[in-house]
Amino acid sequence: MTGSRTTRILGSTLLLGAVLLFFLAFVATEPDTRIDAASGDTIGQFDAVRLMYVHVPSAIVAYTAFFVTAVGSVMVLLRRSVWWDIVAGASAEIGTVAAALTLITGSIWAKPIWNTFWRWDDVRLMTTLVLFMLSLGYLAVRRLEGTAEGRAVRSAVVGLLLIVNVIVVNRSVEWWASETLHQQSTIADVEIEDLTLFTFMYSIFFGVALYVWMLIHRFRVGWLERQFERFGLDDALAARRAEADDHPTVDAAIDSSGGNS
């Protein structure tokens, strides 16, 4: 069990918070529609705007998670900290899922709005895709064989380079595309309705809180895995010896397990 009083309260609150988010996103808020001043036509993102309540929090969680992974990697390299190694790994796993969710929801949103699932000349899109691929590599390194200490240092080097690579990729794609279709800071747009703006901000808060809750649980699982790796064999040997003590000879042990029958 990885739950504690605090995480249970946080988890229960998040469950209620998810219900509220669903209500706000799908029922309470209106679709995005505006009247074009020139033509008089109804324009806007319509119901597709509701995807933003998942897409933007996912993107923020993904980048936050990989930032935490980079910080954890620095701490592993500086102090050989097991605690930070587990935090870095846990955060990267959540970040990878969040990055995938960002790409998927973004593509679904883009189809009706940009009339395409994918744009090669969008900097943020390409950077997130490369970040996702880099994170898969990081997770693959974490699963390589070897001692826990060796694995921690190896992962830390890759984790630290993850951020460096993302910055380089971002710069190079920016040069490459030199334009972006992404909307610029719509949060500051005064035309957004109050409830829509509230739901948008609330979805970001909810996403970050969910990330913290998952990070705590994944950290605890990681910690237990590490303890098992460290003491699991010793415990198993001790249990086997205790079993052997109950049966002083090998023959007796075999007899008792029905081996001669």
Binding site: M133, L134, G137, A140, L144, E145, G146, V168, S172, W176
Partner: peptide
């Protein structure tokens, strides 16, 4: 980073190819 690993043949492309993306972009341009 992947030396001494049995899975190195498969892990190397996953690790290295995204890292080399800026080289492919820059050199192609």
């Amino acid at each position: 980073l992947i030396s001494g690993q049995r899975a190195r043949e498969t892990v190397l492309p996953i690790l290295l190819l995204p890292v080399l993306a800026p080289v492919v972009i820059g050199a192609s341009r």
